[in-house]
Design a protein around this nucleic acid. Sequence first.
DNA 1: TATGAATGAGTCTTCATTCAT
DNA 2: AATGAATGAAGACTCATTCAT
Lengths: 203, 203, 203, 203
Amino acid sequence: MDDIIREPKQKRAIEKKDRIIKSGFELICKNGYYNTNTAEIAKAANVSTGIVYQYFKDKHDIFMEGLEKYGNEIFFPMLNIDINNFSIDDFSSSIQEIIKSHIKDHKVSQRAHEEITSMIHSDKEVATYFYKNELLMTKTIKELLIKNGFKENDLTEKVHIMIGLIDNLCHEIIYHKHDNMDYDKMTTIVIESIKQLFKDNYQ
Amino acid sequence: MDDIIREPKQKRAIEKKDRIIKSGFELICKNGYYNTNTAEIAKAANVSTGIVYQYFKDKHDIFMEGLEKYGNEIFFPMLNIDINNFSIDDFSSSIQEIIKSHIKDHKVSQRAHEEITSMIHSDKEVATYFYKNELLMTKTIKELLIKNGFKENDLTEKVHIMIGLIDNLCHEIIYHKHDNMDYDKMTTIVIESIKQLFKDNYQ
Amino acid sequence: MDDIIREPKQKRAIEKKDRIIKSGFELICKNGYYNTNTAEIAKAANVSTGIVYQYFKDKHDIFMEGLEKYGNEIFFPMLNIDINNFSIDDFSSSIQEIIKSHIKDHKVSQRAHEEITSMIHSDKEVATYFYKNELLMTKTIKELLIKNGFKENDLTEKVHIMIGLIDNLCHEIIYHKHDNMDYDKMTTIVIESIKQLFKDNYQ
Amino acid sequence: MDDIIREPKQKRAIEKKDRIIKSGFELICKNGYYNTNTAEIAKAANVSTGIVYQYFKDKHDIFMEGLEKYGNEIFFPMLNIDINNFSIDDFSSSIQEIIKSHIKDHKVSQRAHEEITSMIHSDKEVATYFYKNELLMTKTIKELLIKNGFKENDLTEKVHIMIGLIDNLCHEIIYHKHDNMDYDKMTTIVIESIKQLFKDNYQ
DNA sequence: TATGAATGAGTCTTCATTCAT
DNA sequence: AATGAATGAAGACTCATTCAT
């Protein structure tokens, strides 16, 4: 009974905290860390300024929790690649799939990427986050490929290059929309490049 | 007479302004826009805080002038590729040359890139700068390749992809130094990828 | 019936209130009034923050009740002098006894004295408390002396001076521990001074 | 000429800083450290809040400078005893003189003493200040007495006790004004006590 | 032109107190 | 009676910009 009564309290508290993280991270991604103040975050989360500091050490902490929570789908969407959707036999569609989900997952903010990567060098915690997840992602994908029959053959380096290719492509598609660029063609070329990249690793 | 007297003054004034731009841009690249204040900039430039506002509308203006002045060598070093150093016959070494100078030019600050790209979306002027120069760079390189006998054949897209490959490589080399990455191999692979990328455009 | 049920509750309530007073007073004495917050007090007392305001008007009220309850043994230990331990025939040892217990009673916190006396002038209630008890103490000791055969002879003033002498001595011993001071000698001298002070009042 | 123009600037700056120190110290002494905010201090000093932080590291710094500047006349007025006014032959009047000036010098605030001594234990800098000056004062007076022919004979301890006696007396006279206390008598008794205290040290 | 002192709005953060449960 | 989450006013401090000289 005690539990039943407490449960919603706790649930609401968690929801509240989540709201703060979400609002904070969204605002920071949209307007920048220094252009977002705690009052705005609190207001967007529909809480008082005071409560923010009951859940978070400081403004930076809000951001870090947001990064931990939402960062992966923005920066490391490939971490969530479903192994079952990956097929060596249909490399093209696998990569296309990755690109699609990559693009789809850019939800929180179009600006997140630049805003946050800019903090890598000023902010040790952010740097650590990226370093950690970059390694993880490379490792994850490498293992995925090996499971799919790829040979170790400068695989680490190639995976890194592939990630860069995909990142750049998605980035271009999502953000820039240069008028003179044909994105379907570009996608095709990138996929072809990736295939070439790994040509010595499978068959 | 007025001119004669003013001339040296003006020369000094120009030098002074340049000093502010340089100091401001360097500090902002090193420590970030919001972690750099005008007092620091003035001090680093060896001028008074007041004078800054005689030469610049505001802090942001200092940064923009710095970006215009020094941005290219940081963000678009390929704009400065010497056409004479580029050879279709020795594609590898040409690209290697580009990478080398790319890396070398990251002088003002290792942090400049992230710091500043983060401002693209919060700052229309910065965005414009990048948009403008990205197009210019793609165009420049494309023309360079055409001059070197390359065929138009999704060349715009390919150039863009190539720039991304090189950027990522340099970035990786300059910033991350992941222990498990062999950068010489990586460079070789990237060059090979670029060659493959353009294989239908030349010969 | 109501009473029977409430009784234990009330007992607990009283204990709870006492715990708040004790914790609050101790913390304030140790860390200062402004460096102690109600959350800490509640936590130390093992109660919720809300309940504090059911027992006390405000934070200041907690402190005042603590002062009333524990203040005497810190600030006016001489109020508790046991008349049976006081002897005109062995003045020295009587005073030595007072000093000993004076020092011993500085238990709640070495800092209490300064912290709280500082509030005398900012806080009318605290001022009233001290004024009231200072008079009481002087009066009490005066009466004690008269009961022990001392003659009225500027006795009020002398008692006040004596209290000051003892206070300073104890204070010095408790807090400062100046290296160059011999506290045994000092005690002897103070006792001799007190004897001299009262030499016209007894014999 | 440059100097002539600069001089007043600098003079005003110094005056401004002094005004902040004075206002800050007065307000803190009157209302307490925690009941005084920087805005009030700035307003009292007739400056903006911002300028305060050009002259001082923080609020505490204002206070410390005030303490260094005005503290001695409040806490250690005897440091300023004029040797020529001190005479072994007329001990009474010498001490009376000290008491008089002691009382006269309590200008900044009646509350200063308690407010500030309360900070001794919470504040290392304040503690250091007091420790340093207490030693200095004891030493100064000791030397003064020796110069006047006093013999070393527990002189350090006696000086300390004397200072306490005088402090308490002045304190009583200045602050408490207990109705039942005759301060002239009290002064006489204190002086007599001091004479007794040193009776073995001179003649 | 040049200085650097001065301004004051804006920011993060704390905490006594209240209130929904 | 009890909890502890929530409030929001207040405070220390920063800094882009202005201004007296």
